[in-house]
C-alpha cells in the first residue's frame, strides 16, 4: 500500500522509546501540566502553608513544657469564647488553647502521615516487587494475603487493630501501618506485570540486561509514578483516618491532635460552645483537601489517558 503520510525520522534504536527518554519527556510535560492547573496550585499553596505551620510551630505558639504535644491547660480561662485575650480561638472545656491545638496539631498530623506513608510505601513496594518478580507460589500466597486484607474496609480494620493494641497515638500510627501497605503492594505488582510486557523492557531483555538491572532502571522508575500519586492522596487520607480513630477515642486524651480536639469539643456544642470542634476540624478538612487536590492534579498530569486528551 502506498500511503502519503510523512515518513517519520529514521528511528534510532538506541534512543527510541527507552525508559530514559520516555521519562525525560514526560517529566517536562508533567511539571508544565501541574502548574497550569489552578486547583493543583491552590492545593500546593495550602500544603506549603501547612508545612510552614508545622515547621515553625514553636515560634507560632510557645511549646508547652515538658511535652509540647500535650495541650497546655489554662484553668483560669476554661471555656472562653474566641477573641478572649491570650486565646484568640477560645479554649476547651479543660482550658486548652484551641489555637495551640490547631498549630501543634499540624505537627502531629505531619508526623502521622509521613511515618505511615513512608513505612507503608516501603512495605508495599517490597512485597509487591517480590510477588511480581518472583511469581509462582510466592506471588499466589502473597496475593491471597492481600485479598484477605482488602476484604475488610480500611478504617474498620485499623480500628480493630488499634483497639487491640490499646488506646494511644503511637498505636494509631502502628495500626495504620499494618493496614495501609496493601494498596501499594497491589499497584507495584500490577505495574511490574504491565511494564514487563512493554517493548523497551523486552528490548532490554533481548540485549541481555540482568534481571536486577532491568528492575532498577526500567521497572522501578515507571512503577513509581502511580505510587507517587497514591502516596500523595494517602498523605491526606491518613490524617483523615487517623483523626477519625482519635475522635472515636483511640488516642490519649489531652494531646494536641485535631481529631482529639474535635472529640473534646463535641461535649460543649449543646451549650453553644461551637469553637472547640469547629477550628480543629476545619484544619483536618484543609489538610485532606490540599493533598487530594495535588494528588488529583498529579494523576491527571501523569496519566496519559486524562480527560483532556484530543
Amino acid at each position: 500500500m502506498t500511503q502519503i503520510d510523512t515518513p517519520a525520522k529514521p528511528l534510532d534504536p538506541l534512543r527510541h522509546d527507552t525508559a530514559f527518554t520516555v521519562r525525560l519527556r514526560r517529566y517536562r510535560e508533567i511539571s508544565g501540566t501541574i502548574l497550569s492547573n489552578p486547583t493543583t496550585v491552590i492545593g500546593l499553596f495550602f500544603i506549603i502553608a501547612l508545612l510552614c505551620m508545622a515547621i515553625f510551630a514553636p515560634l507560632l505558639a510557645p511549646p508547652n513544657v515538658p511535652d509540647p504535644y500535650q495541650m497546655p491547660r489554662d484553668w483560669g480561662a476554661v471555656r472562653s469564647p474566641p477573641g478572649t485575650p491570650g486565646h484568640p480561638l477560645g479554649t476547651t472545656n479543660q482550658g486548652g488553647d484551641v489555637l495551640y491545638g490547631v498549630i501543634w496539631g499540624s505537627r502531629t498530623s505531619l508526623q502521622l502521615s509521613l511515618i505511615v506513608v513512608s513505612v507503608t510505601v516501603v512495605i508495599g513496594v517490597c512485597i509487591g516487587s517480590l510477588a511480581g518478580l518472583v511469581g509462582g507460589w510466592l506471588d499466589e500466597a502473597l496475593m491471597r494475603v492481600v485479598d484477605i486484607f482488602l476484604s475488610i474496609p480500611e478504617l474498620i480494620f485499623a480500628l480493630a487493630v488499634a483497639a487491640i493494641l490499646g488506646p494511644s497515638f503511637t498505636n494509631i500510627i502502628l495500626s495504620l501501618c499494618i493496614v495501609f501497605w496493601v494498596k501499594y503492594a497491589r499497584i507495584m505488582r500490577a505495574q511490574i506485570i504491565l511494564i514487563r510486557q512493554a517493548d523497551y523492557v523486552q528490548a532490554a531483555r533481548v540485549i541481555g540486561d540482568t534481571r536486577f538491572n532491568i528492575f532498577r532502571r526500567d521497572i522501578l522508575p515507571n512503577a513509581i509514578t502511580p505510587i507517587a500519586v497514591q502516596a500523595t492522596l494517602d498523605m491526606g487520607n491518613i490524617v483523615l483516618v487517623g483523626a477519625t480513630l482519635s475522635f472515636i477515642g483511640l488516642s490519649e486524651s489531652g494531646i494536641a491532635e485535631w481529631g482529639v480536639l474535635v472529640s473534646e469539643g463535641q461535649a460543649g456544642i449543646a451549650s453553644g460552645r461551637w469553637w472547640a470542634s469547629t477550628f480543629p476540624g476545619l484544619m483536618i478538612f484543609i489538610w485532606a483537601l490540599a493533598f487530594n487536590l495535588v494528588g488529583d492534579g498529579l494523576r491527571d498530569a501523569l496519566d496519559p489517558k486524562t480527560e483532556d486528551k484530543r
Partner: peptide
C-alpha cells in the same frame, strides 16, 4: 472534591451546631 476530603465526624458536628444547637 471537598466532599471527598471532608472529615465526616466534623461535618456531622457542624450540622449539629447549626441545625440542632
Amino acid at each position: 472534591v471537598s466532599g471527598a476530603s471532608l472529615p465526616l465526624f466534623w461535618f456531622g458536628i457542624v450540622l449539629l451546631i447549626i441545625f440542632w444547637a
